Simulated assay, not measured.
Amino acid sequence: MYDQLRSLEKMILDIKKQHQLVSAELSSLKQKPNADPKELAALKTQLDSRNTEYATTKKQLADLDKRYQSLAEAHHMIGEEQDKLQTQLGELQQQNRELLQQNNELKQQNSELKQQNHDLQEKNLLAAERTQVVLKRLTRIDQMEG
C-alpha cells in the first residue's frame, strides 16, 4: 500500500509539473500571442462576413417588424369593421323581427277583412234576392191594379 501511495504521490507531482508547464505556456501566450497572418486574415474575413450577415438579418428583422405592424393594424381595422357589421346585423335582425310581426298583424287584418268582405257579400246577395222578391211582388201588385 505504501508503494501505491508513492506511486500516487509521483503521479501527483508529474501532474503538478505538467500543470506548471501548461500554465507557464498559457501565460506566455497571453503575454505575446502568435498572430498567424493567414489565420488573422481569415478571421477578419469571417468577421466581415458575419457583420454583413448581421446587417442583412437586422434589415430583414426591421422589414418583418414593419410588416407585422402593418398586419396588426389591418387586423385591428378588420376587428373594428367586424364589430360594426355585428352591430348592423343585430339591428337588421331586430328590424326583421319587427317586420315579421307587422307582416303577421297585416295578415291577420287581411284575414279579418276577407271575412268581413265575405259576410258583406253574403248579406249583399241576400239583399239582392230579397229585392228581387219584393220587385216581383210589386210587379204583381202593379199588374193586379192595372
Rank of each mutant, 00 (worst) to 15 (best):
Q18W: 04
Q31S: 14
L89I: 08
Q143H: 05
L61Y: 14
M144L: 15
R67D: 09
Q69T: 09
I12G: 01
Q101Y: 01
E122R: 03
K59Q: 09
Y54F: 13
K136E: 07
S111C: 08
D65H: 01
L5R: 10
D48T: 13
N117L: 14
Q121V: 06
Q31D: 08
Q88R: 10
Q31N: 15
L26N: 03
R97S: 12
Q132S: 15
V22F: 06
R130D: 12
R140A: 12
Q20W: 01
A42V: 06
E81F: 02
Q88E: 03
E73S: 13
I141C: 04
L125R: 13
Q20L: 00
Q46S: 15
K107G: 04
T57W: 01
S111P: 01
L8W: 04
M144N: 11
I15D: 03
L61G: 02
S27C: 13
N117H: 06
A24L: 05
A128T: 08
N110Y: 03
Q82P: 00
Q4S: 13
K59G: 02
Q143I: 04
M77K: 15
H75K: 14
P37C: 03
D14M: 06
Q31M: 10
E91M: 09
D142T: 07
Q4N: 13
S49P: 01
R97L: 10
L21A: 04
L64F: 08
Q101P: 00
Q101K: 10
S28D: 12
Q115K: 14
A24G: 02
T56H: 07
A42E: 02
S23F: 04
T52W: 06
I12Q: 00
S49M: 10
E91S: 15
S28K: 10
L138Y: 05
D65W: 02
K58S: 14
R97I: 03
E81G: 07
L135G: 00
A55D: 10
L29S: 08
M1C: 12
N117I: 09
I15Y: 03
Q121F: 07
T87F: 04
A127C: 12
K136F: 07
R67A: 11
Q116A: 15
T56F: 06
S49W: 02
N110H: 13
A72R: 00
L64P: 05
Q86M: 10
Q88W: 01
Q4K: 13
K84D: 10
Q60N: 09
Q86T: 15
D48K: 07
K38D: 13
Q94H: 09
T45N: 14
D36L: 04
K32I: 05
M77L: 15
